[in-house]
């Protein structure tokens, strides 16, 4: 009897141990995924209080029909994918993340893709670990800002009433590369960007936070009025 009990106890311990290990592995995957999410953070928020930024918030993404976050301006391609029945699951999100431009041609996410399946699984594990949806009450509201030079600059330029017609003329310099349809083909989409994000990006080029030489050159000589005009113009465009 003793022996039997002991064996049983051993079995139980082993099971517990295996369970713990599995939980541990899960945690590790989510932790790895959190690091990978660093690349997404510039545009996406997830977790309690998440808001739309350049991209839609990802809180409670699993089960959501594609292209349906309130207040976000999607490409026609993404809206159509949703209308055609695409909903986000671990499988569909994994397929999308591998090569976004191939999975939904014409969508405007400026992300090349995540080739390693292991990475995609980790990232999805992280998103799943965020639990039930609890986004901000108004996901389209601008996020509260920390006071830094970029924010101060953004606030100054936001106060200028941007002349969209002037912006349209100035945009001639931009649309040789950034397509007015919002199509992404190796150069990011800048159509429909929130004004504050657009202005902050200009500041970051002016101050070498962003390093692209072509952009630094275009932005270097832009006056605040011109940045305001461009932000107004590109913000007014609807992605196609």
């Amino acid at each position: 009897m003793m022996l039997r009990h002991w064996a049983l106890a051993c079995g139980l311990a082993a099971m517990l141990l295996a369970g713990a290990e599995q939980a541990n592995a899960q945690e590790t995957a989510a932790a790895r995924g959190e690091k990978l999410f660093g690349a997404c953070k510039a545009c996406h928020e997830v977790g309690t209080g998440a808001r739309n930024k350049v991209g839609p918030h990802l809180d409670g993404i699993f089960g959501r029909v594609a292209g349906t976050v309130e207040g976000f301006r999607y490409s026609d391609a993404m809206k159509k994918a949703g209308a055609d029945g695409l909903a986000w699951s671990a499988e569909s999100l994994g397929a999308y993340l591998e090569k976004p431009r191939d999975f939904i041609a014409g969508n405007r996410m400026s992300y090349r893709g995540m080739p390693e399946k292991g990475d995609r699984d980790d990232l999805i594990a992280y998103l799943q670990s965020q639990g039930p949806a609890s986004p901000a009450a108004n996901v389209a509201a601008p996020e509260p800002k920390a006071k830094d030079p970029a924010t101060e600059f953004t606030d100054i330029v936001l106060k200028i009433a941007g002349d969209a017609a002037y912006g349209e003329y100035l945009s001639g310099d931009c649309v040789t590369c950034h397509q007015t349809t919002g199509q992404v083909a190796g150069i990011p989409s800048i159509v429909g960007l929130p004004k504050d994000y657009f202005i902050r990006a200009m500041f970051e080029y002016k101050t070498n936070v962003r390093s692209n030489e072509v952009m630094k050159l275009r932005v270097a000589n832009l006056a605040n009025e011109e940045i305001a005009a461009l932000a107004a113009y590109f913000g007014s465009l609807q992605p196609k």
Partner: peptide, 17 residues
């Protein structure tokens, strides 16, 4: 090189679309 490809798509759209 990726930027160049993007530019090609952009300028040809700016000319012909």
């Amino acid at each position: 090189t990726e930027e160049a490809n993007g530019w090609y798509a952009g300028i040809t759209a700016d000319m012909f679309s």
